[in-house]
Simulated scan of single mutants.
Amino acid sequence: MDNLKVRLDKKRLERAANVLKCVAHPMRISIIDLLEQRKRLTVTQLQQVLEIEQSLLSHHLINMRDKGIVNTHREGKNIYYSLTDTSLTDIIDIINKGKAL
């Protein structure tokens, strides 16, 4: 027990907790999965695949952007969303393999 210690500083622990709270929603996990597949997508593209109202999707995307999970990039009239850190997709891989259940 002498060598046992918390390996993350308080700031990193708080960041991890905030990210995990934010992505702890089936729709947000789906968005992460889709963005892993295509690297960047518009709201319209995401909406077509997810089959949800644009306002609800925008709510999720704004929350994810505010927590630093997704980036936005405007090209003309389109706003593209992409993942800020693709390591988040490791969570989905673990869930798909059944290790987290």
Results as ranks from 00 to 15, higher is better:
Gln37Glu: 11
Gln37Pro: 02
Gln37Asn: 06
Arg38Lys: 15
Lys39Met: 05
Arg40Leu: 04
Arg40Asp: 10
Arg40Trp: 08
Arg40Pro: 05
Arg40Phe: 03
Leu41Met: 15
Leu41Val: 02
Leu41Trp: 02
Leu41Ala: 12
Thr42Phe: 03
Thr42Val: 05
Thr42Gln: 03
Thr44Ala: 05
Thr44Gly: 02
Gln45Thr: 09
Gln45Ser: 08
Gln45Cys: 05
Leu46Tyr: 09
Gln47Thr: 04
Gln48Val: 01
Gln48Lys: 06
Gln48Tyr: 00
Gln48Glu: 10
Val49Asn: 02
Val49Cys: 05
Leu50Cys: 05
Leu50His: 03
Glu51Leu: 06
Ile52Asp: 01
Ile52Gly: 03
Ile52Tyr: 04
Glu53Leu: 11
Gln54Lys: 15
Gln54Pro: 02
Ser55His: 13
Ser55Asn: 11
Leu56Asn: 10
Leu56His: 12
Leu56Glu: 14
Ser58Cys: 12
Ser58Ala: 12
His59Arg: 15
His59Glu: 11
His59Ala: 03
His59Asn: 12
His60Trp: 01
His60Lys: 04
His60Phe: 03
Leu61Glu: 01
Leu61Gln: 08
Ile62Tyr: 00
Ile62Met: 07
Ile62Glu: 01
Asn63Thr: 06
Asn63Asp: 13
Asn63Pro: 04
Met64Ala: 06
Met64Lys: 08
Met64Thr: 07
Met64Trp: 04
Arg65Gln: 13
Arg65His: 05
Arg65Trp: 00
Arg65Tyr: 07
Asp66Leu: 07
Asp66Arg: 13
Lys67Pro: 01
Ile69Trp: 10
Ile69Lys: 11
Ile69Cys: 03
Val70Glu: 08
Asn71His: 14
Thr72Ala: 12
His73Ala: 11
Arg74Leu: 05
Glu75Trp: 00
Glu75Lys: 15
Gly76Pro: 07
Lys77Phe: 00
Lys77Ile: 02
Asn78Ser: 15
Asn78Glu: 15
Asn78Gly: 07
Asn78Trp: 05
Asn78His: 13
